[in-house]
Simulated assay, not measured.
Amino acid sequence: MAKRTAVKNAPKADGINPRQPCPCGSGKRYKACHGSSGGPADVIVSRPFEGLASECELIALREFVPSATVKLPLKDGEVTLATVLPMAAAGLVRGDDVPFVGLQVQTRSGDVSRDLARAVMWAKDAKSGDVLPVVGPDTDENPGRLQDLLDADADIVPELHADFTWWLPEETEPTGDVALSLERANAAILPTERLDAPGVKAAYWVDAGDKAHLRWVRPEPEEQLLNGMARLAARGELDLGEGSRYAGSFRAHGLLVPVWDLDREMHAREWASPAEALGKRLLEAMSSDEQLNDAERRAREGLRGRQITIR
């Protein structure tokens, strides 16, 4: 009996014990999740980009950046990641043979990372003009996850675009349905810029019409981040200076995204230095080992009351 149990619990060839929790964070055993044939069909992975240096930027591109592209730091080959492709396709190869994969897609399974890996592998072998409409749990191939294909330590700096003309090769005039699709997509874009300052990553200025916002994807564990923000809020320092106020936060793919309302009369560049200063204050506040005082605890509860979760 002991011998049989030892064999049953032995690690697989990839070093993961099939009876242990799956590394994806789903909470299921590995053999019932990514260790099963074809991978999981219905497992929701709450933090799909965990372990990647580009995690925060990927979340921003997935959730609220309208038009942007970036070369993925693949271990092998080259594919361009895009926020959204025509018809919200999962992948396409442009007429000039440039392959793209999309983040904002029509349908997906519970693991965005695995779906992206499938799209990347498709794009590397696809031909000019090919389109991959969707990927999902019924796809036969199981290439692993994005973490298996990328250089985990490589960061990314997306290129933001004012419209979607990059959908087509340069000097290509859109006609017919393509022109109409481009017109509709361009009309829906909210002006967006990425703040460029030391220590400021995945922070985006967005002009929403009546006001502007700063949306900043933070990498810290939620409780640590909330405690730091509560300390600043209790001191009246949880803002970017005159013309700004903290609005709330939302959770996206396992991380917290604080949002500030901003004076839209000021240019995005004018908020870079205030964001840098706020980032430094926040890091200092999060590094404190002291217990929150009464005012800070009240502030933390107020911050919790202004949170929502999106998938």
Rank of each mutant, 00 (worst) to 15 (best):
V7A: 13
P11G: 08
I16D: 07
N17R: 13
R19H: 15
P21N: 04
C22M: 10
R29T: 11
R29Y: 05
H34C: 15
H34W: 12
S36C: 13
V43P: 01
V43W: 04
I44F: 13
S46M: 08
P48V: 01
P48Q: 01
G51M: 05
A53I: 09
C56E: 15
E57D: 14
A60I: 09
L61Y: 08
R62E: 07
E63H: 14
E63F: 11
F64A: 03
S67D: 11
A68K: 06
P73H: 08
L74A: 08
K75A: 10
K75I: 13
G77K: 13
E78C: 10
E78R: 15
T80N: 09
A89I: 07
A90N: 08
R94K: 13
D96H: 05
P99R: 11
F100A: 10
V101A: 11
G102D: 08
G102W: 06
Q106K: 09
S109P: 02
D111M: 05
L116T: 02
A119E: 05
G129F: 11
D130R: 04
P133E: 07
D138W: 04
D138N: 07
N142V: 07
N142E: 12
A154P: 02
H161Y: 15
H161D: 12
D163Q: 12
W166K: 11
E170Y: 08
E170R: 14
E171D: 15
P174L: 14
T175S: 11
D177Q: 12
D177E: 14
A179T: 07
L180R: 13
L180F: 07
E183L: 12
E183F: 07
R184Y: 11
A185F: 06
P191C: 12
R194V: 01
R194N: 04
A203E: 02
A203H: 03
W205P: 00
D207K: 04
G209T: 09
K211A: 07
K211T: 08
K211I: 03
A212N: 01
A212G: 03
H213N: 01
V217L: 08
E222T: 05
E222I: 02
G228Q: 03
A234M: 08
E237T: 04
E242H: 04
S244F: 01
R245P: 00
R245E: 08
A247L: 02
G254T: 05
P258K: 04
L262H: 00
L262D: 00
R264K: 12
A268K: 01
E270K: 01
E270I: 00
S273G: 06
S273T: 07
A275C: 13
A275L: 03
A275T: 15
E276R: 14
L278M: 15
L278D: 05
K280F: 08
K280Q: 15
L283T: 15
A285F: 10
M286C: 12
M286E: 14
S287E: 12
S288P: 11
D289L: 09
L292N: 10
D294V: 14
R298L: 14
A299H: 09
R300G: 03
R300W: 06
G302C: 08
R304M: 10
R304V: 09
R306I: 03
R306C: 05
I308M: 06
T309Y: 01
T309K: 06
T309E: 09
T309F: 02
